[in-house]
Amino acid sequence: MRVRRVVTTRAGGASRPPYESFNLGDHVGDDAGDVYANRKRLASELGLAEDKLAWMEQVHGRTATVVDGTETSAAEATDALVTDRPGVALVVLVADCVPVLMADPEAGVVAAVHAGRVGARVGVVPAALEAMRELGAEPGRVEALLGPAICGDCYEVPAAMAADVEKHLPGSACETRKGTTGLDLRAGLWRQLADLGVGRVGADPRCTAEDKTLFSFRRDGTTGRIAGITWLEEEKA
């Protein structure tokens, strides 16, 4: 089954500063009408019905929720969406956190995961992978994309925090460009996915803090959200 993956940028939307312009987050203080216009355009550009975009109320936890496209509102208090229904597009919103898009094309199962520092530390990616397994996915067949996120050169954190995350997500502690203690969540997640037996892992190398075509909370404070989206393409008759 064909898997589609898309990552948006901040260009081409209706939102005004400081959310200019393709902000897809409805929880960041942006005008609701502008966000709706952006989400409507997203569906149109993807060639999908608006009600086939599955959203979630991200809370930096480890809950994974299975959806089937019949939901009428965002999945509550979850940081991963999983589906085996073609045409249902799973959306994860980020502005420095790692969007993780996973798929087992053979089983026809996809997942979109919000893996920030807290969620990555507490195991949101393994939780999403387990939910995929329950729908028939096998780790060895899974393809994972780690989307744009703040890089280790830019993500400065206190030494104790880095040590704590490293304990739970080995490979994530690093040194920043300034020579201070930092975190490279994509590096830690890459290692975690490999240890879980995931067959293929790729990464979008863009840093949200460095690339001004992307939103970054660390860089700008009040700002919008880009999206990582994945879905199974419906087979044509």
Rank of each mutant, 00 (worst) to 15 (best):
97 C>K: 07
80 A>C: 13
80 A>F: 03
99 P>L: 06
91 V>I: 12
83 T>I: 10
68 D>W: 08
101 L>E: 06
113 V>R: 02
74 A>R: 14
117 R>C: 07
117 R>K: 12
70 T>V: 09
107 A>S: 03
72 T>R: 09
115 A>N: 13
97 C>S: 15
92 V>R: 00
100 V>L: 07
105 P>V: 09
79 D>A: 09
112 A>C: 14
112 A>I: 08
91 V>L: 10
90 L>S: 09
75 A>K: 01
71 E>V: 10
67 V>H: 05
68 D>E: 15
99 P>C: 10
69 G>P: 08
96 D>F: 07
84 D>L: 03
80 A>Y: 05
66 V>G: 04
112 A>G: 06
71 E>N: 05
72 T>K: 11
87 G>A: 10
91 V>R: 02
66 V>T: 09
85 R>Q: 15
104 D>R: 01
76 E>Y: 09
101 L>Q: 03
79 D>R: 05
90 L>G: 05
67 V>L: 13
95 A>M: 04
83 T>V: 13
90 L>W: 06
82 V>D: 04
84 D>F: 00
91 V>A: 05
98 V>R: 00
109 V>E: 00
73 S>R: 13
105 P>A: 15
96 D>H: 15
88 V>D: 06
117 R>N: 09
77 A>Q: 14
84 D>I: 01
111 A>I: 01
89 A>G: 14
73 S>Y: 14
82 V>Y: 01
116 G>I: 13
109 V>T: 00
106 E>G: 04
84 D>T: 06
91 V>E: 05
108 G>E: 02
81 L>Q: 09
81 L>N: 12
71 E>D: 06
97 C>N: 14
99 P>I: 10
102 M>F: 02
103 A>K: 01
70 T>L: 12
73 S>C: 02
102 M>A: 15
110 V>S: 01
99 P>G: 11
115 A>L: 13
117 R>W: 08
116 G>F: 13
98 V>D: 00
99 P>D: 08
89 A>K: 10
113 V>D: 00
117 R>A: 13
